[in-house]
């Protein structure tokens, strides 16, 4: 038991926070640089500053719901790998389940289970290495090949803007159709959430007044969640 407390003490060592700062800052810096670049390029495609502000704001507001949902998962992850690592890992690619799988694999490679008394600082270090190595898979691939994917995309659509838009719409429908179907199959409250949110989004998209537009997705999500709770309680 003593060793178990020990590893979490080290995992929450103030210097571990400092070690997590570079990654978290990099995410903020990238978002800032991309924002600045977007503002500068906006006049080229006749977007006003006001439209840019609106786009940023819509993104920020619509993310509140999902971000708070991540919050809850975070707390359980913090109990396993400590707050600084959770902070670093969840600021970048790799959601909590992915990171916890990596944590487990890091321990398993030493023949140890996470949460057992044998899970000591070295085993924790092994988990930390595994999380980092795993995250790098996406970072390296996208860092090196993103601009190449664009060329392939142009080839497929022959550079036709109209076709690109169709492809984009189809890709969103393909993936969100999969995600929504998978969620619907979990339970009937999940199914109600999918249907209620989809219907309210469709209706809001058509009928909502201008001032409400920015909150559409947030409202649809709340309606979905309420529908799920009602279904749950009615069972």
């Amino acid at each position: 038991m003593e060793t178990a407390t020990h590893y979490l003490e080290i995992a929450n060592d103030p210097m571990m926070w400092v070690m997590a700062i570079p990654v978290v800052s990099l995410v903020a810096i990238q978002a800032w640089l991309f924002t600045v670049r977007s503002y500068k390029s906006a006049p080229l495609v006749n977007l006003s500053h006001q439209q840019c502000r609106q786009a940023f704001k819509v993104g920020a507001v619509s993310a509140i719901g999902p971000a708070v949902a991540v919050f809850i998962v975070m707390v359980s992850m913090m109990a396993v790998v400590g707050a600084p690592m959770t902070w670093q890992r969840l600021a970048i690619i790799g959601a909590a389940p992915t990171e916890l799988t990596a944590t487990t694999m890091g321990a398993k490679a030493m023949g140890i289970e996470v949460g057992s008394p044998e899970y000591d600082v070295t085993a924790f270090a092994s988990s930390v290495w595994t999380m980092a190595l795993n995250g790098c898979g996406w970072l390296v691939f996208c860092g090196l090949f993103t601009h190449k994917m664009d060329k392939v995309m142009h080839k497929v659509t022959g550079g036709s803007m109209r076709l690109m838009a169709e492809v984009c719409g189809a890709a969103v429908l393909g993936t969100s159709g999969y995600l929504a179907t998978a969620q619907s199959m979990i339970s009937s409250p999940h199914l109600s959430a999918v249907i209620a949110a989809a219907l309210s989004m469709a209706l809001l998209g058509r009928f909502s007044p201008k001032w409400l537009k920015e909150y559409e997705l947030g409202i649809a999500m709340i309606i979905g969640m309420v529908a799920a709770i009602i279904t749950l309680k009615a069972q």
Binding site: L179, A193, V194, A220, M221
Partner: peptide, 11 residues
């Protein structure tokens, strides 16, 4: 139920 709601809305 955030996830089913957001995926439904997006769809």
């Amino acid at each position: 139920y955030v996830l089913p709601s957001i995926f439904g809305g997006l769809f």
